Simulated assay, not measured.
Amino acid sequence: MNKIITLFISLLSLNLFSQTDKNGNPVFNSLTLSEEKVNDYVLNSNYYTLANNISNKNSSVFITEQPSLDEIELAATKLPSDFFLVVKNLSPVKMIMLAEKSEMVFFVIDPATGANEVFPADIKGDITENRAKEIIEQKFDKRAKIDGNILFFNNKNLSIISTKEIKAKVKKLIAKKNLNQGEANQTKFDDKALLKKIVIKETHNGGKLDFFTEIKGHENDGIQVKPGIFSTKMGIALYKWGRGNYEIGVNNVEDALNIWEEIKERKPSKREIEYITMGFNKQLEN
């Protein structure tokens, strides 16, 4: 796992901040959780998910499509979780990421150069609050529960690190090390917009997500998906398109449907919603 973290840090430094490699594949999918104005900068709070990462072949932290509880626990407690952007004029000045080496530390990355520094975080605990919440939401373990600042998961009690504490320590580090100083990088942090551009491009004729050109004129032809299950060629194409969105790194099916709406310049039909959702959730592969 330490090797994976080291590889991830290297990839992140090289590919700041798009979260994608040179081929457009996601390094580690993330969600923006909040933005807060602090003095002369904006603190952008983000979270690296387990879902659509450790079970996604295109992610740099892929484990397997069906990770065990032990594998999920290791990833949940060892992989980077929360990260923050110091933003000025809509552009990042610094990235600050909480990670574990022999102890909790903050990696600070300069987007202009890719150079990084490491600072002690002075934070104790087994798992971040955002990770604990995701474990409950994703139902990785039906017996998992949160009781106060303890997560019961995989037959273990894991102490939870509060988001409030992490953010307070980040603000203190920014002030102490003047991390809000310097010129804003010209690279915009707009992961969702970048992924949308990739999906739209790959959906066009001949792209990786173009499952439609080859079936033109035969959209309603019947096809057997697996024994006892039948659909149309268009249904399967929509399913594959939804699945492709998941693999590229789109974080939820609502974002995928919004991209489809932009491509088609209309609201998705009931059938399109059904099949794209099934594909995104890999329902025919269960």
Rank of each mutant, 00 (worst) to 15 (best):
D191E: 12
N251G: 12
R266C: 06
I200L: 14
K201A: 10
W241V: 03
W241D: 03
I236V: 11
Q181A: 15
D191G: 06
A193M: 04
N258R: 10
L195V: 05
N157D: 13
D191A: 06
S159W: 01
N252K: 12
L158S: 04
A193D: 06
N251A: 00
E272N: 04
K172Q: 15
K188L: 10
T232S: 15
F212N: 00
K264W: 06
G249T: 09
N220F: 11
T163D: 13
A193F: 07
E247Q: 13
L151I: 10
K233I: 08
P227C: 09
A193N: 14
W241M: 08
N149G: 01
N155K: 15
L209W: 01
K176E: 15
I146Q: 05
T187G: 02
D255G: 07
E219A: 11
K264I: 09
L151R: 00
A256D: 02
P268S: 10
I160C: 06
V170K: 03
E261V: 10
P268A: 08
K226P: 00
N180T: 03
I161Y: 03
A175V: 14
W260C: 09
G249L: 06
I161D: 06
T203V: 04
K226T: 14
N258V: 04
I146F: 06
K169E: 03
G228L: 13
K192P: 08
H218W: 05
L158H: 00
K240A: 04
L209C: 08
I263V: 15
L158I: 05
N258K: 15
K171H: 07
K240S: 11
N155S: 12
I166T: 03
G206Q: 09
E272M: 11
N180K: 11
N157P: 04
N149F: 04
R271F: 14
I259Q: 01
I223F: 09
I166K: 06
K208F: 12
W260Q: 05
N258M: 12
Y246A: 01
E165K: 14
A175L: 01
N157T: 02
